Simulated scan of single mutants.
Amino acid sequence: MDLHTLKPAEGSTHRKLRVGRGRASGKGKTSARGQKGQMSRSGSTHKPLFEGGQMPMARRIPIRGFKNINRKEFAPVNLAALDKFDDGAEITEAVLREAGLVKGRFDGVKILGNGELTKKVSVKASAFSAAAKEKIEAAGGSCETV
């Protein structure tokens, strides 16, 4: 494939519609612009979302709440997912990413208490839920907040 052989996909391009070429063309007389008004005149345009001078929808709707730009977002990992690691393993964020349990951009990893843990593992994460910490320590493992 070369640049000079490229063509648009079949059916993706259309012939330009020639308006204002007589009544028989189907787009004659007012040329699909209607009778009168701003948009029937030649050269008329207005900004997107312009509502003819009335207060625009984007400004009528109230703003609710607050967005914290310094918020930390943690990737959630359940205890059931940690059970696939070997007994005595040290689990860090890098190990979880390698195993495919954490994908994407996050500020850290939070271990949640959903599921059961049967192996003794050492977990290093940004945060732990109370239930997760309890279950990891009950299985003989250790939790370390990084």
Score class of each variant (00 low, 15 high):
M1R: 07
A80Y: 11
K119I: 10
E73F: 09
D83F: 12
L82H: 02
T13A: 05
L79H: 10
K103V: 14
I63A: 02
E51S: 13
R41N: 11
L96F: 09
H46M: 14
G28H: 11
K67A: 14
L49M: 08
V123G: 08
F66Q: 03
F106T: 00
V109N: 06
K36I: 05
V123Q: 08
I69T: 13
G100I: 12
I61K: 03
T5R: 13
N70W: 00
Q35N: 10
D107R: 02
R64N: 08
D107M: 06
K36E: 12
F106V: 01
R41E: 14
R41F: 05
L6Y: 04
D87E: 15
A132R: 02
K16R: 13
K120H: 01
G113I: 08
E10K: 13
V123W: 05
S126Y: 04
G11T: 10
G113K: 11
H14Q: 12
L3G: 03
G22V: 11
A75M: 04
T145C: 07
A24C: 01
H4E: 02
T45E: 08
V19N: 09
V102H: 06
S31Y: 07
N68R: 09
R97I: 10
K27Q: 08
D107W: 01
L112T: 14
G37R: 01
D86L: 12
T118H: 14
I69Q: 10
P76C: 03
C143I: 13
K16H: 11
T30D: 14
E10A: 12
R21C: 10
R71F: 00
G43W: 02
Q54D: 02
R97E: 13
A130I: 07
E144N: 09
D2G: 11
P76G: 07
G100Y: 12
A9F: 06
E134R: 13
T30F: 14
A24M: 04
G108H: 07
M39W: 05
A99G: 08
G43P: 05
F128M: 11
L3M: 07
F66Y: 14
G37C: 04
A138H: 03
G88F: 12
L82C: 08
L3D: 05
E51Y: 04
A127R: 14
G104M: 04
F66L: 04
S142A: 13
K47C: 00
L101P: 00
A75C: 14
A89Y: 07
A24K: 11
G88N: 05
S25M: 00
Q54R: 12
S12A: 08
N78A: 15
A89Q: 10
Q38L: 08
D83P: 08
I136P: 00
P8Y: 02
K120Q: 09
